[in-house]
Simulated assay, not measured.
Amino acid sequence: MIELRTLRQFVAVAEELHFGRAAERLHMTQPPLTQAIQKLEGSLGTPLFERSSRSVALSAAGLGLLPQARAILAQAEALPAFAQAAARGSRGRLRLGFISTVGFGDLPRWLRLFREDFADIELTLREATLDVQMREFAQNDLDAGFIIHAPGAQPPGFESLRISSEAMVLALSSEESLAVSASLDVQAVLRRPLVIFPREIAPSLFDALLAFYRQHGLEPQVVQEAIQMQTIVNLVSAGIGLAWVPASVMAFQRAGVVYRPLIGAAPVCETSLIWRRDAAPTVLRFVEHIQRLMLS
């Protein structure tokens, strides 16, 4: 194995093309330098210099090795700065999961600013529901994730930052008789066919909606399940049923769909950023970034 010291000695001789001057530059005497270069040539199996009594020149092998040696030395000199940046969380990687609904809010702007402020962090995005994110956390394939849940129902064992809390509204076909109302009475909507997400992708929110129906003495009439909120809204446009969606989804305008609030108290959902308690510095840097932007 070639040591960095030996590479520095080779580069000095290659740049000076004089063993005496190279030895002075390296603050050493000439005989040990000559021996080090000879040993390097022996380990490589080829001469690096063409020597005569009057001159020293690089051989073909020496010319080929010089840029590589300089690059290796430059990388080695940069290692302390890289390590310090990684410790500060300004260099490294961040694997981030997110549910589709967070894209209707500030997430695109937050990510753009994060990439601008932390260009040395490799950011990998993965759209994934809560159940998928939990599996990826368990497999150490995810560092942080945005999830949707019922109020206060963040997964145990994680640190969390609440991003938003919003009432859910009803998405319904513009052909529905209820579509003409500015807001909807609870009894008028709870008896209608329902399009909803599967329980496993957001169990606390699914259970909160189920409890809301039962508080009014009814069971939901589920006619179709879909994972993505955009798909749910598209199914609503087809007249299959109505759907509960976070108020932020109203930014998704789909022909044939209107959004209406409920008269009185409606179910509430929260969006949170979650991460492991032993998270890497890059994760903590991202959390700080989101906190700062939320306050600005």
Rank of each mutant, 00 (worst) to 15 (best):
E219H: 14
E200N: 10
A150H: 10
Q139N: 13
S165W: 02
P31N: 04
P155D: 03
S177Y: 10
P108T: 05
A182G: 06
Q253R: 12
A36W: 04
D141Y: 13
A202L: 06
V245P: 03
A226Q: 09
I240R: 12
A85W: 14
P261T: 04
C269H: 07
P151M: 07
G239D: 06
G239V: 13
A12E: 03
L194F: 08
T34F: 08
F104I: 03
L262R: 06
P193D: 05
V132N: 09
V222T: 10
A12S: 11
I232M: 14
Y213K: 07
E50P: 00
S160C: 11
P203R: 08
V180P: 00
G20C: 09
L190Y: 02
Q224C: 11
L125S: 01
L66Q: 06
P267H: 01
P155H: 04
L184T: 02
A12C: 04
A23Q: 05
L295S: 15
R199Q: 11
L293A: 13
A255T: 12
F206S: 10
G20Q: 14
H27N: 08
Q9L: 05
G103V: 11
D120P: 01
R95D: 01
S296Q: 14
V195D: 05
V186K: 07
A265T: 08
H216I: 02
E15M: 04
I290P: 00
E50V: 14
I148C: 12
H149D: 03
V223L: 06
V268Y: 07
R199G: 00
P67E: 09
E270G: 01
H289W: 02
E41W: 07
R260N: 05
E219N: 08
D131F: 05
S272T: 14
S53Y: 09
